[in-house]
Structure formats: C-alpha cells, structure tokens
Amino acid sequence: MFQTMELLQDAISHLAKAYDDMIAISDPRVSGWLLMDSPIPTIIITLLYLLMVWWGPKIMKSHEPLEMKRIMMAYNFGCVFLSFYIVKECVLCGYMAGYRVQCQPVTYSYDEWEMRIAKAMWWFYFSKCIEMLDTFFFIVRKKNSQLSFLHVYHHSSMFLLWWIGVKWVAGGQ
C-alpha cells in the first residue's frame, strides 16, 4: 500500500516537473494574456462544451425549437469581421516583419509587428471558443443532425490545440 502511494507521488512529481519545464520554454510574450497562463480554463471550457453537446439535445427534447435568425446573422457577421481582422493583421504584419513564402522561424521578439502577429494568433485561438456557439445554435434550433462526430471533434479539439499553438509558437509560419 505504501509503495503504491510512493509510486503515485513520484509519478505526480515527475508530471509536475515536466509541466513546469514545458511552461518555462513557452512564449513569454503571451504571459498574462486572457486564458494563456494555464491550460485549465481552456480544458474547463472544452468540457463544458462537451456537456452542452450531451445534455443540450436532451433538454431541448421537450421544448420547441428557438428562432435565432437575427442573433445568428449578428453572430455570423461578427465571425466574418473577426476573421477579416485576423487575416489583415497576419498579412500586413507578416509583410512588415519581413516574412517570406519560405518557412519563417518563430521569433519571440517584442517588435511591434511580431507582437501584432502574436495578438492575431491569440484572437484566432479565442475565435475557436466563440465558434463553439455554432453547436449551441444547432441545439436550440433542434438541428441535431448537424451535430456530427466531426463537428464536435473539430470544435472541441481546435480550441485546445490553438491554446498550445499560442502558448509556444505565436508567430512564424
């Protein structure tokens, strides 16, 4: 019993050290940015998303579908605007920072253009959270046939993967 507890404590200690080592080599420019200091908030939001996918259709089963046309139009316009902003920032700042068609290494510089690229990458990450609303709209409109495995997998994994991307490589190509 005591040997099992010691092994468990040792494993936890090694995992904690590995986590600390990984955080130590992360991009220092994103430290303090919303949701960037720990993966826990991103994991919690993703788990809440998956709970919504599981419970949402069950809750809506006894309700009429909601009419969401105006809200969805505003949401879609907002997503288009945000995507345009992200592309504009990446193209303009990439050009100004001297990015070329060939592979561009990550630069952890505090140069204005590199910082704007890092911020655009953060907005792209955050857009993955916002885009989880697609699923909410499917559920409240009772369009459950659109809740495919691919749809749910995409929305739940992209948010987590982009946290990693912004945390370690918010720049370069």
Rank of each mutant, 00 (worst) to 15 (best):
R100W: 06
W123C: 08
D10H: 06
F138N: 00
S157W: 11
S109N: 07
M22R: 11
D27P: 04
P65N: 06
Q3D: 13
A97L: 08
Q173R: 14
N76K: 00
A16P: 00
M132D: 01
L8N: 14
M68N: 07
L161W: 10
T42K: 04
V152W: 02
G171L: 11
E6L: 13
I40K: 00
I139R: 06
Y125L: 09
P65A: 05
W162D: 05
K61M: 02
Y153K: 02
R141D: 06
S109R: 00
L8V: 13
Y85M: 12
V106N: 11
C103F: 09
R141G: 03
A11L: 15
L150T: 13
I45T: 10
G172V: 11
F159N: 01
S83D: 02
W168Q: 14
Y125F: 15
T4L: 12
Y95F: 10
L147A: 09
H63A: 12
G32W: 07
H14C: 07
T4G: 07
L34M: 04
A97C: 00
W123Q: 02
F136L: 12
L160Y: 10
S148W: 00
I25E: 08
Y110K: 06
Y153M: 10
G56L: 12
S83L: 00
W54L: 13
M158N: 03
T135M: 07
I86A: 03
Y110H: 14
W123L: 09
S127G: 04
V166S: 12
I71A: 11
M5L: 15
R29Q: 08
W122F: 06
G172M: 09
L160V: 15
M158E: 05
I23S: 11
W162Q: 13
W122P: 06
K88Y: 14
F159Q: 08
R116F: 07
W113D: 13
Q173P: 03
S26K: 09
A24H: 04
D111L: 11
F84Q: 05
F126T: 08
T46D: 08
E131K: 04
A11N: 10
E112K: 12
M22E: 11
S62H: 08
F159R: 08
V91T: 13
I130H: 05
C129L: 12
H14R: 02
L35T: 01
F138K: 00
K143E: 04
D111Q: 08
K58T: 01
M5S: 11
P28H: 07
T135R: 02
Y108W: 05
C93T: 13
K58Y: 03
S157Q: 13
L133Q: 11
Y153G: 01
I43C: 11
I71N: 01
I23T: 09
C93G: 14
F124Q: 09
L47F: 03
W168H: 14
M60R: 00
K142P: 11
C79I: 09
M115D: 03
Y75N: 02
Q104G: 01
P39T: 06
P39Q: 05
E131V: 02
E89N: 13
V169K: 10
